[in-house]
């Protein structure tokens, strides 16, 4: 195999991983923009999406299972907001961070007891684990195309929703100027619930499409959350396009560092870069230093 093809192969695997991180990062952004809370439990939505879809796929055809999982997880997201974040909105950031971490652990443990510690996965959406598509000589699984396609479509849909629908605009108004939004008669609390629901749905969808490739297990959420979080901060909190860029960047760095560093260290490089960015440009690579854009979508 030529070195160019090898590089292309790494790049593709980086983009695949990165697009998952991007999806988690967008979820982070949605909730952060609407509520000011960074939800450490975001990764659990991804995990729950995968797990529920796997279970449903025993009884229903695949598309129904995926749709069902997304809806169920979206409801869980809304429920969490109603139960924990709505009543505790006036707590300090420190407390909010701790609560989301607590939720993350509890959801994980609940998953462990509902299912078990076994690794499971959805079937490949098309083809199977050995079918592959050649792109400029690099072989990739068709599932990767599913992942990339799903993420592209959902990012575009999200964008349209936020820009061009009444609900979406109301949500943006809430984040950029809550007082004005309130005066304009927008129910901010409901918008926050909606943000949680949407973000959970997005996470769950991501969890379904990657399940055939990366497998799903009760513990799979936390590492994803941390990487997705890193992607969101790397890009600059509050900007979904920057989050996508941040996610891809982390995925690609990770893929290439696998070739250079011992396998066990492969996460180290991603986190080292995150720390560097935090220390040098805390507002992210694409954010503005004044923090003006911090609460914009």
């Amino acid at each position: 195999m030529g070195s160019e093809i090898l590089i292309l192969q790494y790049l593709l695997s980086g983009i695949t991983k990165g697009s998952i991180y991007a999806m988690v990062a967008i979820g982070f952004n949605l909730i952060f923009s609407a509520t000011g809370v960074l939800n450490f439990a975001q990764g659990e939505f991804v995990m729950l999406g995968g797990m529920i879809a796997v279970t449903l796929s025993f009884y229903f055809p695949l598309p129904v299972a995926v749709a069902g999982a997304v809806v169920i997880v979206a409801c869980i997201g809304c429920l969490l907001e109603l139960l924990f974040f709505r009543p505790l909105r006036h707590h300090s950031i420190l407390h909010m961070i701790i609560i989301t971490i607590g939720l993350s652990i509890v959801i994980q443990e609940a998953a462990l007891h509902i299912w078990d510690e076994k690794v499971r996965s959805l079937p490949y959406f098309t083809g199977n684990e050995i079918s592959s598509v050649k792109i400029y000589g690099a072989a990739i699984s068709p599932q990767v195309l599913w992942v990339l396609g799903t993420i592209t479509v959902s990012v575009i849909l999200l964008h349209i929703f936020l820009r061009y629908t009444l609900q979406g605009r109301a949500m943006r108004a809430c984040s950029s100027n809550p007082e004005a939004a309130m005066l304009a008669g927008i129910n901010i609390s409901n918008m926050r619930t909606l943000a949680f629901g949407l973000s959970a749905a997005l996470g769950a969808l991501g969890g379904c499409v990657i399940s055939p490739i990366t497998m799903t297990q009760y513990e799979a959420g936390a590492p994803l959350a941390i990487k997705g979080f890193a992607a969101a901060i790397l890009g600059g909190l509050g900007n979904p396009m920057a989050a996508v860029a941040g996610g891809l960047l982390i995925g690609i760095i990770e893929a290439f560092s696998v070739s250079k560093l011992p396998a066990a260290y492969n996460d180290v490089s991603a986190f080292a870069i995150l720390l560097l960015v935090l220390f040098i440009r805390p507002h992210g690579l694409f954010g503005s230093p004044s923090g003006q854009g911090v609460r914009e979508f």
Partner: peptide, 12 residues
Amino acid sequence: AVFGALLIIIIS
């Protein structure tokens, strides 16, 4: 789970 629940309950 105990530790997670502890976090949530105490903080809330």
